[in-house]
Design a protein around this nucleic acid. Structure first.
Length: 367
DNA sequence: AAACCGTGGTG
DNA sequence: TCACCAAGGTT
């Protein structure tokens, strides 16, 4: 069931596609993944670009294709090798799924990225967007992509009235994207829709006067920022996190590896945990190190505090230098642990807040 | 369906 | 400062 607005747009699809593609061919940014049609590199770029800006993604993409030029080389690497390259990019499940998928592709598809939707969707980390992006860009198949850019572009073109976060809205806009994609150049069309959203049809202050398809968008050019419509999100909770910095007689720092699933999965970190209500931050530090590692510690100097925002909560990290009073640290959850020399800390993947702590320790001449 | 999952840029 | 959000996927 199409709205009147989408019917009008689809009726003009050939003209719309031509205007957009002409603009794209003249104005497209020169991005590294646009220099290849290797399905592996297209896949890699799309995974890196999930919820990630081009400027942040680019150096990671270049490092990844240099370090892992083929599916086979990615599959042969260890997860820790991959996480070292991925460190700082966030959403670490992408790295874990990429790694799993590479091994599946080697085993089941002889190292070739699948060229059909069913097989692609069966691989971890590949959802509707990424499958359509790979199929259209690497294999010239006419699937429309629906990312944040396309949602914004289409919702403005159509004056789409509903909350675009609802699944019914997504389904509808996806069907419009599929109907609108240029069959003769599906990959280029999809890239041009996203390019338009990223450079012209931006969330704030869109450049409507420079838009190649503004004549198809008569209704929203006066108030484009009213779209896409969304409900307000609730403020996210805050937690205080106590962290213990343990240093042994050889100057090595104690760290442990997080479980492979969940938040920051597979990364290394300094021990500690959440302060409970009514508890002091020093008490939290003592309690967490006792619970996690079975040691009694004296909580010493507060070395630094580090704020960090995650996707659905925020923290303030309080790092204390600690001395062991009794016991020897062993993981109560059977996680890998290590005493790491200062000059080998870069061989382990740490979350951003922990990496900031390491930099602070260097600054304070503590390591 | 809605919560979970990082980090950094932007206004 | 702070809300928003970026080439989304999984559970």
């Amino acid at each position: 069931m199409k709205t009147a607005a989408s019917t009008i747009l689809l009726t003009q699809a050939p003209e719309f596609q031509k205007a957009l593609l002409n603009w794209f061919q003249a104005r497209a940014r020169d991005l590294p993944w646009r220099k290849t049609t290797d399905p592996y590199k297209i896949w890699l770029s799309e995974v890196i670009l999930q919820q990630t800006r081009v400027d942040q993604a680019t150096p990671y993409y270049l490092r990844m294709i240099e370090r892992f030029p083929t599916v086979s080389e990615l599959a042969a690497a260890s997860l820790d090798d991959l996480l070292i390259v991925w460190e700082g990019l966030g959403y670490y499940s992408r790295a874990r799924n990429l790694h799993k998928a590479a091994r599946e592709i080697v085993e089941r598809f002889q190292g070739h990225v699948p060229n059909n939707r069913e097989d692609l969707l069966g691989l971890p980390g590949i959802g509707p967007y990424t499958a359509s992006a790979i199929l259209s860009i690497a294999f010239a198949q006419p699937y429309g992509v629906l990312d944040g850019n396309v949602i914004r572009v289409l919702s403005r073109l159509l004056e789409f009235p509903d909350d675009v976060r609802k699944s019914a809205s997504r389904n509808y806009l996806q069907s419009v994207a599929n109907d609108l994609v240029a069959v003769s150049a599906p990959g280029e069309f999809n890239e041009s829709m996203m390019e338009l959203g990223a450079t012209i049809c931006t969330p704030k202050n869109p450049q409507c006067e420079a838009c190649p398809v503004h004549s198809f968008c008569e209704g929203t050019k006066n108030d484009p920022e009213a779209f896409p419509r969304t409900v307000k999100k609730l403020p996210i909770p805050h937690h205080d996190i106590a962290v213990g910095v343990l240093c042994n007689s050889q100057g090595e720092l104690f760290a442990q590896r997080r479980p492979e699933n969940g938040l920051l999965g597979g990364l290394w970190e300094f021990p500690g945990g959440k302060r409970e209500s009514g508890e002091s931050i020093e008490d939290a530090c003592r309690r967490e190190l006792k619970e996690e590692l079975g040691i009694d510690v004296e909580v010493g100097e507060l070395l630094t505090t580090i704020p960090q925002v995650y996707s659905h909560f925020k923290i303030t990290l309080y790092a204390f230098r600690c001395d062991i009073l009794s016991g020897s640290p062993e993981s109560s959850r059977d996680l890998p642990i290590a005493w790491i020399a200062a000059d080998r800390l870069e061989e382990y993947a740490f979350p951003k807040a922990n990496r900031k702590l390491i930099e602070k320790l260097v600054e304070l001449d503590q390591i």
